[in-house]
Simulated assay, not measured.
Amino acid sequence: MLKVILIGTGNISKFLFDVFISDPSVEMVQVVGRNEKALEHFSASTPVSNNFENLKEADVCIIAVNDNAIEEVSHRLNIKKGILVHTAGSISIEVLPKHLRRGVLYPLQTLSGIVPEKRREIPICVEAIQQEDYEVLHQLARCISDRVERIDSEQRKQLHLAAVFANNFSNHMYFLASEICKDHEVPFDLLRPLIRESCNKIMNFSPYEVQTGPARRGDVNILEEHLNMLNNKKLKEVYTTLSESIQETYGKKL
């Protein structure tokens, strides 16, 4: 049985806690965080504390705090044994104290509102300095998901960057589309079947194969018409930049 400590009380910590507390191969020995109110989520079934220097012994201590606090928090912890792990996509394993056994356990997913039956599909990216530590973290990651990948810090940073394009930027495009609809009293709901179908295609084909639209076709008249319809300078820049990128990808020019 793996003994685990969680440092932090946010979404990732709650997600991992809810997974581990129900797994017979994991023993949650402690949750540590600054926010006493947030600690109430964990206190019914696990010892909690706001003292970062007084930790119980565990096989794995997982830091699940804001990215910019990982290095500071990691150097405050008094760890005598076990592996110290963070969960961030864009932070190197090297920020963790070098005298400790170190690792990374990065869930590549937006965890707020994740439905339990989808949990096993979440890619878990694992990194460790020592092979024996990787094997421990791989075992722990398999408690979360069926998809565990060995990814080093540089690969993980690039994967996180790609995720920003695929998820955060695409969602912002949906927002901009909703604003255009709102400004012209058109229901955004009419776009949902199109969005759903596009997402479904990506699950089975490469993004390169499924690209459509006037920029892909090289339809200069429609591109110019759309630009004339946009009164917002920023939207014009976004539309132009994306259209140029699509045309460059497929060997066409505006």
Rank of each mutant, 00 (worst) to 15 (best):
H75A: 07
H75S: 10
E53W: 11
F169S: 12
V95R: 00
D146T: 13
A69I: 11
M229I: 08
H41A: 06
I180A: 04
V85T: 05
I7G: 02
V115K: 15
E121K: 07
R34H: 11
N11A: 10
N78L: 10
K182D: 14
Q247G: 10
M28Y: 03
G113E: 09
K157F: 13
L190M: 12
N171H: 10
E237T: 09
E94C: 03
D67C: 09
D18L: 15
N68I: 05
R119I: 15
R142C: 13
P207D: 11
L230E: 03
Q139V: 07
E149W: 05
Y106M: 05
D152W: 03
A177I: 13
R192S: 11
V126T: 02
E53S: 15
R119Q: 15
S198G: 14
E237I: 06
C125V: 00
S206Y: 13
R119A: 12
I122V: 15
L77G: 03
L235C: 09
V65F: 05
R196K: 15
K182N: 14
E225G: 07
V31R: 01
L77I: 06
L111T: 05
V126H: 01
G113K: 10
V136S: 00
I122H: 01
E36K: 14
A177H: 07
E185Y: 11
E71A: 12
H184M: 05
N231E: 15
K118W: 14
V60R: 00
M229E: 09
E117D: 15
A64L: 01
L242D: 01
L96H: 01
P116G: 12
A128M: 05
V238H: 02
